[in-house]
């Protein structure tokens, strides 16, 4: 209990630190970088729920982001619905898309690489659709008006978006913390570890996986509105970019799948790498080359990510203490 309390205190301290940080960071650039880190971490967390906790990797996670972005943006440009309502619609749109994709793929038993690829195909399908129909602005894209205000979820200063992104980040961490402690989270992990055994223990694996992808979708939908209101422009290649799909899984895998803080740590590390790479050679592609190597190295040598490396050390000390305890008691019973 005291350990839990201590963790809670650390968590709160970190949260407070991030909340007051803008008061001490003068540079708009760093505020923007942090905003982007929070945003990526948030998207990574959405991927983590389905990929990290439930073990279902998706290569098309961007589809929820894009659909949410279009939902609130079209509502705004066509019907004048303020984004603060639009974001709610975006959340529902993302969840609905999650339901459709999840129901179709999981019901037909797709898993592993096949599930990853079918999500890629869904994202591609939506990109082509968005490019072809009128109401998304087609290939020309949608331009949003600059009109700062809370109801528009637009802010005059980078600090405003910083707090918006921070709020999203807090929500995503709260969701992950809930998963860590709840029955639903345990069921997702059970599915990841062994689907047959989970089913035998009474877990409705299909339903759990669909719920997980719906949460992912809802989170992605909100991210879409955030992006659209921050950058005020949307077109199909942005909305359904494979690069964002990859970034979501990349930050999570690098930080640690199935952990609360993996996506945040991954997003932080990768953005730092990105800034450093840009500092030395400002040529497009370089930081992504580095990302590619990082991904391969992590997959091959640190399957539990950076957090896993840290935890392993803790576990080793734990285990040796346990061994000692066992030998003291002379308990060889296995």
């Amino acid at each position: 209990m005291s350990a839990l309390g201590k963790n809670m205190m650390l968590l709160l301290a970190g949260a407070v630190l991030l909340m007051v940080a803008p008061a001490f960071i003068v540079s708009k650039f760093y505020i923007d970088v942090l905003t982007l880190i929070f945003f990526t971490a948030y998207l990574g967390q959405s991927w983590n729920i389905l990929g990290g906790y439930a073990g279902q990797f998706s290569f098309g996670g961007v589809m929820f982001f894009g659909t949410g972005a279009y939902a609130s943006s079209i509502l705004l440009t066509t019907f004048g619905v303020p984004p603060i309502i639009g974001i709610v619609v975006a959340i529902f749109a993302g969840a609905l898309l999650g339901f459709i994709v999840g129901f179709m793929s999981f019901r037909s038993g797709l898993k592993g690489s096949y599930f990853a690829l079918i999500t890629l195909a869904f994202a591609e399908l939506l990109r082509v659709l968005a490019n072809s129909v009128e109401f998304t602005g087609g290939g020309v894209g949608l331009f949003l008006k600059y009109a700062p205000g809370l109801s528009n979820l637009q802010f005059e200063t980078p600090t405003g978006f910083y707090y918006f992104a921070l709020l999203l980040l807090f929500i995503s961490i709260a969701i992950a913390l809930w998963l860590e402690r709840s029955r639903f989270g345990a069921q997702l992990v059970a599915i990841r570890e062994n689907e047959d055994a989970a089913e035998a223990l009474g877990i409705n694996t299909l339903r759990c996986k669909i719920y997980a992808i719906m949460i992912m979708g809802a989170m992605g939908g909100a991210a879409g509105t955030f992006y659209a209101q921050k950058y005020l422009y949307l077109d199909p290649p942005i909305a359904y970019s494979i690069h964002l799909s990859v970034e979501m899984l990349l930050v999570t895998i690098v930080g640690g799948m199935g952990t609360v803080f993996g996506p945040l740590i991954g997003a932080f590390v990768l953005h730092v790498v990105n800034e450093i790479a840009r500092h030395f050679i400002d040529t497009p592609g370089l930081s992504l080359i580095v990302y590619g190597f990082i991904l391969i190295i992590i997959i091959s040598y640190l399957p539990n990510g950076l957090i896993g490396m840290f935890k392993k050390k803790l576990k080793q000390t734990d285990a040796s203490a346990l061994d000692k305890l066992k030998s003291d008691q002379g308990d060889g019973n296995a």
Binding site: G112, V246, G285, L288, I289, I299
Partner: peptide
């Protein structure tokens, strides 16, 4: 690198495609 795991290979070849694509860009 893959150590025989299906999803590892998918992700490693994804990493490879990122490296190749961006090296070409570079």
């Amino acid at each position: 690198l893959s150590k025989g795991k299906d999803q590892n290979i998918l992700l490693i070849t994804l990493g490879l495609s990122i490296i190749i694509e961006n090296s070409a860009l570079f």
